[in-house]
């Protein structure tokens, strides 16, 4: 390993699109669109998730997301947040495709408001239907390696297991199953949801994930822009550590200074 290698030569590809940043950030819960845009810039994210909602008829002059985060500079990844059936999700994404012309989408079909856990039966069904319609579907799923495989079999271009419930900030709860998903998947794996702070993002990347998707951890930090920068560094650090290959764990100490030549 004496040959020089380019530390920065690292990218990932989803549905034929190649990205350098492995951090995807949401655009919800910010105090203002200005703050949101500044956080996205600080995060270095090349992809942002966005929601599809009714225009506000009573306030047509309200500032618009697209005025602050330029969809020509940053890839918009429309989501189906708030959809509880495959049909709702498909309807939402058809509108998203018409609004933005994008086929790369994030599918989430939720089961209940309390946990916002994905309904995997509906999720797999929607993945299959959307894939047949030409969508490239990145799928929010449970941290279950079998369900992740089902999503992949249904046509998912990426599987995105939750680290912990959406907005919980609890960090990766099941590192073993996330690792099993990484080892079994032929498509990119991104931890989506549950990250609370930088170490959580680094831990997800150290498991070999291709990326991390987060919203609340940045938006609800006391200083979202500083946290966005922290997450950029964490994802990069975790990735580098994974590529570097960590040392083996030992049960007892092993001195770092030579024992030979001791006075």
């Amino acid at each position: 390993m004496n040959a020089p290698h380019n530390i920065d030569a690292d990218s990932w590809t989803v549905a034929g699109r190649t990205f350098r940043s492995r951090l995807i950030v949401g655009t919800g819960k910010y105090k203002s669109l200005e703050q949101n845009a500044a956080a996205v810039a600080a995060s270095g994210a090349e992809i942002v998730t966005v929601a599809v909602r009714r225009v506000n008829i009573s306030d047509a002059n309200a500032p618009m997301l697209t005025d602050f985060i330029d969809p020509r500079q940053v890839t918009y990844l429309p989501n189906t947040a708030g959809c509880f059936t495959a049909e709702d999700a498909i309807r939402t994404l058809r509108l998203a495709r018409e609004a933005g012309g994008w086929s790369l989408v994030k599918l989430e079909v939720l089961a209940e408001a309390k946990t916002l856990y994905p309904d995997m039966i509906e999720t797999v069904r929607a993945t299959e239907l959307l894939s047949k319609e030409g969508f490239e579907v990145m799928v929010y799923c449970t941290d279950d390696p079998i369900m992740a495989r089902r999503c992949e079999d249904a046509g998912a271009v990426a599987v995105m297991p939750l680290g912990a419930p959406i907005g919980s900030g609890l960090g990766v709860q099941n590192p073993v199953t996330i690792r099993l998903i990484v080892e079994g998947a032929k498509v990119p794996v991104l931890v989506d949801a549950g990250v609370g702070t930088a170490s959580d993002a680094a831990a997800a990347m150290e498991l070999g994930c291709d990326g991390v998707l987060m919203n609340t951890a940045i938006a609800e930090a006391k200083d979202p822009i500083l946290m966005a920068r922290a997450m950029k560094a964490a994802v990069e650090s975790g990735r580098l550590a994974y590529r570097a290959g960590r040392m083996a764990k030992r049960r007892y100490a092993d001195p770092s200074s030579p024992l030979a030549g001791l006075i």
């Binding site: 919800g28 998730t49 966005v50 599809v52 009714r54 997301l65 697209t66 918009y76 907005g167």
Partner: peptide, 10 residues
């Protein structure tokens, strides 16, 4: 009619 656009979301 439903008229929609993109808004912030996670």
């Amino acid at each position: 009619y439903e008229i929609v656009h993109f808004v912030g979301g996670g």
